[in-house]
């Protein structure tokens, strides 16, 4: 039996890719004097450090549009990695390893937790705005 989360990830992976592409274009537009490589690396860093881990955490809350989850997920990703980085540093894991390990840790724990989530809990429709 395939996990509902796996299905969701498969469906939304192209959207995530699009978020990264939009981020790169947006950053190149704002920082147009910067080299493309620096823009690319900066945009990818934001995507890797905050958007992806936050997106993974927000998979638990499916009753929002992808875009809202991606934006809120970025805030969640920043909150969790900021707090997590502080404590991991205190217990002895040097910060230089965090940029690689922390997102993997957050995504791994979240997906392990959500993997067995039944489809009924994870597939809800986006609520309509109160008024148009």
């Amino acid at each position: 039996m395939k996990s509902a989360i796996f299905e969701k990830l498969k469906k939304e992976a192209p959207y995530l890719g699009m978020v990264l592409i939009v981020l790169i274009i947006l950053f190149k537009a704002v920082f147009f004097k910067e080299s493309f490589l620096t823009v690319l690396r900066t945009a990818f860093s934001i995507f890797w450090l905050w958007i992806l881990p936050g997106y993974a955490i927000m998979l638990y809350w499916q009753n929002l549009s992808f875009l809202e989850r991606a934006v809120a997920g970025t805030a969640v990703g920043m909150a969790v990695s900021g707090i997590g980085g502080y404590y991991l540093g205190l217990i002895g894991l040097n910060l230089k390893f965090h940029a690689a390990l922390l997102p993997i840790l957050i995504i791994g724990i979240t997906l392990a937790f959500l993997w067995k989530q039944p489809a009924s809990e994870s597939e809800e429709k986006e609520p309509a705005p109160a008024q148009e």
């Binding site: 450090l49 909150a79 980085g85 910060l95 965090h98 940029a99 922390l102």
Partner: peptide, 17 residues
């Protein structure tokens, strides 16, 4: 309060900025 600093250090390591 440590969060801003940790975010900036992580971001620095990842981005090279």
């Amino acid at each position: 309060p440590p969060v801003l600093y940790h975010l900036s250090v992580l971001f620095s390591y990842a981005s090279g900025l």
